[in-house]
Design a protein around this nucleic acid. Sequence first.
DNA 1: CAGTGGTCTAGACCACGCT
DNA 2: GCGTGGTCTAGACCACTGT
Lengths: 262, 262
Amino acid sequence: MTDPLSDRPAYRQVADRLRAPIESGEWPAGHKLPSESELMEQFSVSRVTVRLAVGALRAEGLILTRQGRGSFVRDRAANRRVSSTRYQHDARYAAGRVAEPATGFGNSPEDRNRLECSFREQRANQQVADFLGLQVGEPVLERHYVHYVDERPERISTSYLPMELVKDTPVADPANEPWPGGTVAQLASLGQPVTRVIESVRARMPTPDESTTLRLSAGVPVLVVTRRMLTGADRDHPVEAAVDIVLPADRVVLDYVVDLAD
Amino acid sequence: MTDPLSDRPAYRQVADRLRAPIESGEWPAGHKLPSESELMEQFSVSRVTVRLAVGALRAEGLILTRQGRGSFVRDRAANRRVSSTRYQHDARYAAGRVAEPATGFGNSPEDRNRLECSFREQRANQQVADFLGLQVGEPVLERHYVHYVDERPERISTSYLPMELVKDTPVADPANEPWPGGTVAQLASLGQPVTRVIESVRARMPTPDESTTLRLSAGVPVLVVTRRMLTGADRDHPVEAAVDIVLPADRVVLDYVVDLAD
DNA sequence: CAGTGGTCTAGACCACGCT
DNA sequence: GCGTGGTCTAGACCACTGT
């Protein structure tokens, strides 16, 4: 039953009573919630009220609903770690100092990875021009990737390289993807050893397109990384800009190692 | 009008037709959407259908609704940048090599910052023990913070220090907060200069409590950072663990600088 | 087939914000 | 007072999942 005297709306009271056993762990991941008809009877409310409550929990990312089956407690443990140390590792690989590249953005074995990519020549927009130190309209190579791990899409990204740098080189040929050692190794092959990577991390709800591509359930945000790669002894010459690396937040953790030495 | 022949449900069609002018920029941040009655008439659908459409846009973080006023396009530009370089800066400050500390987690002028904190002695749980290299149950100092910038709550965090390290020191006294130079400077004052910081970044939807404290509107995720601070020449001796630094994703961007030098 | 969630209608009353 | 969104009801039909 709900308390009609409370100023807390009925649907919130129902949501609260369902949230408690989820957050306490009493209902573990995969546990089936009572059906909507059971909840209607249990709390003496209409179907619309029940659905408002269930919808709230779904928007919080606590449950997922499947037509014809029911509502279930979602597994919220993100398990793929993506570490900033992969850049250092790939730089050492490109310099011939280690035998194996870092195993992709996902640090997962090669045989579980798959990459879809499409390249095209494009003219720099304002943001890309700012990042690469170019004028708006200068030619750049736009590279669009969808990265799969175990047949699950785990990353959408769009990256830009100055056309002047890559024209008529193996880097501009999508047939050479996936390139061992990634973008860091590609730039090294062009005589541009990366000396600094700057990543900016944001989070937001996915667009419907992203939600479809990444197969996200309701209530799951995306991590959005923008990346700049720089070369030179002063680490200030931009050579690559990845403006949107979109990652599913229910599966990915980003690790950053910051060393203090002066 | 909606197309009843389409297999796309009516509420999605309405949502699509409202999303287009928002994403194209035709309706800029702050623009008022048509009222629910107007949408009912315009698309010849019931109120419930209109509210499903509006609710979907709200869950995507595109709009916010205010009772008695209407629905408005939300401003999605996050503007506070939090950079990993603040740790290096604070280390130099603690070593007396620069005159001013980094201006807080938010890198914003001191006079716009305010800190609420509460300290208490606690026994390490499994996660804290793992992070600090202690046994479960060993005493730790638990520090809970809420950080405001311009009177807006911008960060909730819980941090742990080994009790053995801080007992009867100025660091254990909340009256000394905010401490110039932050945790890095506090540890330096204890003879524990931090040599490495490891941050793990996740994103998820907020709990109702977090949503209230951070004054989040619907459809806004939180960035969740867990941090470990390490000392020693081998950068492997843990001295601090911040298990949950919760940041509003509509206002904060995290910047990380990764230098490659070998 | 029965049970589940997904969509949709018509109608009602309330709380809030502005004039 | 009036228009706004917030909450709630009773009832209907559909699509999907399992037996």
